[in-house]
Nucleic acid binder design. Structure first.
Lengths: 218, 218
DNA sequence: ATTATCTATAGATCTATAGATAATGC
DNA sequence: ATTATCTATAGATCTATAGATAATGC
């Protein structure tokens, strides 16, 4: 077992394995990347890889942990004041950034979760936190008069937003038969998700939203 | 090669392989089911399986063909008259039914498509047909005054509907850490998708939609 | 004769570990 | 002494095929 403290080349190798795994998972899909592939790409022996990680599942779990931290950071809302449309936009931006960085998870979400109970439980909880966060944000927007929606409408909106944020990447990959799995146009995804609010905004807030979008595009 | 005409036990075995594959793919996920598993479950030798199918990919492709037919049937719109809200409901019902029957495809959509270029192309085209169909339907609803929406609003709606219909099953599987992959509550999915229209309906049409939903639930 | 099926297996992986060896830090 | 790494390989699959045998239809 490697010591947890920084220790010469050890920590660097461990990090390199994680980075290489992430890059290869993202490029080819986690199910199609073996520990041998990772070791070869990282320039180490398969035995060395297993010195640093118990199993391939262990690698995936470590990467999931980092992803989870990013998502939770993205979900943070300002504590001191009521959130506004800009906060929602920023939140979506951070979420899409995190998802893009760990896109292998969203690419094969159901399969990865089916093969690892711990990740399955943690992802289900993460979705619950995301749901609660989105609900709090939209409820605050309704309370401050930025949008006009009933509680059931907000619930439906939240579910649409969470579902589409979770699978936007899969949708893009599946829609275009020539899609090569590279970065992807996050901007379109964000614009689409936030566009779900438009029916619930009055004219001035729609213009406000359009202004945010234009500023973001530039 | 088996002859295409019905031929004694042969056609039955071929059918049994397909049915067994479908059941096992749906139960455990296509990536986790091997040709050996299928042969054993179907009560035949692996050699016999390969007498009827060139490869595992070939089996998946045959199943995809049947799925494609079901989806295209579901997308058919009445030719003689303008479509109405009931037609949309029926269309969604048939779509969810087809997806549920071939749920293994939607469970691992990105991975399956990445491993088979022919299926990838066909699925991309199928999504285009679904998009065109939904667009025609919503445009007709707008033209007959059932809903009030501009062309860009309809485009956004169509994209939301297609994305959420495609991944509703994955969403359900991923949301509940104890989900066992069985049938799933299609009703909730349909209600959610069609609920996307509500902001674009006036009061009388909202009641109409609620009535359809109540009739469907009973 | 043709079609359908089985047995047996080649060949390619893949995960993970044992055991030897090299590098590092006190 | 401890940590990191490599070599080599066991053991488990998995896909797909060759070749023998059984069943079927004319």
């Amino acid at each position: 077992m490697p010591r947890l403290s920084a220790h010469g080349a050890s920590g660097r190798t461990r990090e390199r394995i994680l980075e290489t795994s992430l890059a290869m998972f993202n490029a080819h899909g986690e199910p199609n990347v073996t520990t041998n592939h990772i070791a070869e790409e990282a320039g180490i022996s398969p035995g060395n890889l297993y010195y640093h990680f118990r199993s391939k599942s262990d690698i995936v779990e470590q990467l999931f942990g980092a992803y989870e931290v990013l998502i939770d950071q993205a979900l943070l809302l300002p504590a001191a004041r009521r959130p506004n449309l800009e906060d929602l936009w920023l939140q979506l931006h951070l979420l899409f950034e995190a998802i893009s960085r760990y896109r292998f998870l969203h690419r094969d979400l159901v399969d990865i979760l089916s093969r690892n109970r711990r990740i399955r439980t943690r992802f289900a909880r993460l979705l619950q936190r995301a749901t609660a966060s989105a609900q709090a944000l939209l409820t605050a927007l309704a309370a401050t008069g930025v949008m006009h929606a009933t509680a059931p409408q907000i619930n439906a909106l939240v579910e649409s937003m969470i579902l589409q944020t979770t699978f936007w990447l899969g949708y893009e990959m599946v829609r275009d038969s020539r899609y090569d799995g590279s970065a992807g146009d996050a901007g379109r995804g964000i614009t689409h998700i936030i566009g779900l609010l438009i029916p619930y905004l009055d004219e001035s807030e729609r213009r406000h939203l359009a202004a945010i979008g234009a500023a973001y595009a530039a």
